[in-house]
């Protein structure tokens, strides 16, 4: 009974993680400019791989392995926003345009 519960929980985590990865990939293709694409990649993508790692920890059913999986999860969650922020800053400094849907760009007003 217990192992079925663990298996169902792990399966849910796996499918949710894969689903979020797929959503991030769809977003990467559908969204209009680099900044909006970064939203999809940094949020949905991180959550996707994080959930899959958690599934490994849960499936192993060992505290030390679970702790390692949690550590990996935290690592991904903490590094993803840093790389996204750095890329966005670099892209804006170098002068990539926002898409034509955009309503405002106060950073540009500030710099000029």
């Amino acid at each position: 009974m217990m192992d079925i519960l663990v298996a169902v929980l792990t399966a849910c985590l796996i499918l949710a993680g894969a689903g979020f990865a797929l959503v991030a990939a769809i977003g990467l293709n559908r969204l209009p400019d680099i900044y909006t694409r970064m939203h999809a990649a940094s949020k949905a993508g991180t959550v996707g791989s994080g959930l899959l790692l958690l599934a490994v920890g849960l499936h192993a059913g060992d505290l030390s392995i679970f702790a390692r999986a949690i550590a990996g999860f935290f690592f991904f969650v903490l590094t993803a926003p840093i790389s996204a922020h750095l890329l966005a800053m670099a892209a804006h400094k170098v002068g990539y345009r926002l898409s034509s849907h955009s309503t405002r760009d106060e950073l540009k007003d500030y710099e000029s």
Binding site: G19, F20, I26, G27, L31, Y35, A44, T46, R104, E106
Partner: peptide, 22 residues
């Protein structure tokens, strides 16, 4: 936020008003 991005991306008509604010 992951859920919101998912809903936004999979909705058939994306209604975006992106921008940078201070």
């Amino acid at each position: 936020s992951a859920w919101k991005v998912a809903v936004l991306v999979t909705s058939p008509r994306m209604d975006l008003k992106p921008g940078i604010f201070a």
